[in-house]
C-alpha cells in the first residue's frame, strides 16, 4: 500500500516536473498573450468575413491549372529572396540551385507560371531574413500577432522589412500593378492554407502559435531538428 502510494507521489512529481517547463515556456515565448489574442481575434474576424470568402470565390472561379500557375509565379519570385538569404547564410550550394531555379523557371517556365526546375531535379528552398537572423544566432524574441500580417516573432517581424526590399513586386513602378500583385499573392497564400486549416483543433490561437513557432524552428535548422523524425507520426 505504501509502495503504491509512493509510486503515485513519484509519478505526480514527475508529471509536475515535466509540465512545469512547458508552462514556463509558454510565458516565455508569449508574454504579450493579451495583446496577441486581441490582434488574433481581429485578424480572425477579417479572415472569416473578407479574406476567406474572397479566397473561396477565387478558387471557385479559377481553373486549377491557372491557380497552380499563379502559385508558381509567386513561388518563383520568392526564390529570389531565398537566393539572397542563402547567400547571407553562407549556403552557397543552395544559393546556386536557387539561381538555377529562377533562371530556368523565368525562361523555360514562362515567367515562372510553370515550375520546370522541380521536375528537372533542382530542389526548392525557403529562406527569409527572419531565418537568416535565426541562423546567425538571434533568438526569436516574444511571439507577436500583427494586425493584417498575422503570427510572427520580434525577430521575424524585423526580418519582414528586408524581405519586402528584396521582393521584386515591391520594385514595380506601376502602383496599380503592384497592388494587384500584392492582393493576388495574399489570396494565393490564403488558398494554400485552406486545406491545412482543417487540421486545427482545440484553442485556435494556441494551435496556430505553436504550429508557427515549431515551423520556424524547423525551417531555420533546415529540418535538422532534435527529436524530429519524419516517420514519427
Amino acid at each position: 500500500m505504501i509502495t503504491k502510494f509512493r509510486g503515485l507521489v513519484v509519478a505526480g512529481a514527475v508529471a509536475l516536473a515535466l509540465s512545469q517547463p512547458v508552462m514556463a515556456e509558454n510565458v516565455e515565448v508569449d508574454p504579450w498573450e493579451g495583446f496577441n489574442r486581441a490582434m488574433f481575434n481581429f485578424n480572425d474576424g477579417l479572415d472569416t468575413y473578407a479574406l476567406k470568402p474572397v479566397t473561396k470565390g477565387y478558387k471557385a472561379v479559377m481553373p486549377d491549372m491557372a491557380e497552380e500557375g499563379v502559385h508558381n509565379f509567386f513561388e518563383n519570385l520568392a526564390d529570389i529572396g531565398t537566393l539572397i538569404n542563402n547567400l547571407l547564410q553562407g549556403k552557397f550550394e543552395n544559393a546556386g540551385k536557387d539561381f538555377a531555379r529562377v533562371s530556368f523557371n523565368s525562361t523555360f517556365g514562362l515567367a515562372g507560371f510553370i515550375d520546370v526546375a522541380s521536375p528537372m531535379g533542382i530542389e526548392k528552398h525557403e529562406e527569409d531574413f527572419g531565418q537568416t537572423f535565426g541562423y546567425w544566432g538571434a533568438s526569436s524574441g516574444p511571439y507577436v500577432v500583427l494586425p493584417f500580417f498575422g503570427p510572427t516573432t520580434v525577430r521575424d517581424g524585423i526580418g519582414m522589412y528586408p524581405d519586402t526590399l528584396v521582393d521584386p513586386v515591391y520594385h514595380l513602378d506601376d502602383t496599380g500593378a503592384r497592388n494587384a500583385l500584392y492582393l493576388t499573392r495574399v489570396i494565393d497564400t490564403r488558398a494554400q492554407l485552406l486545406a491545412s486549416e482543417k487540421l486545427i483543433s482545440g484553442d485556435k490561437y494556441t494551435f496556430i502559435r505553436d504550429a508557427y513557432l515549431q515551423k520556424r524552428e524547423f525551417d531555420i535548422a533546415d529540418g535538422d531538428v532534435e527529436n524530429y523524425d519524419e516517420s514519427n507520426f
Partner: peptide
C-alpha cells in the same frame, strides 16, 4: 561548379 544530377553553374 557541378551540383550533381546534371546541374552546373
Amino acid at each position: 561548379y557541378n551540383f550533381g544530377e546534371g546541374l552546373s553553374a
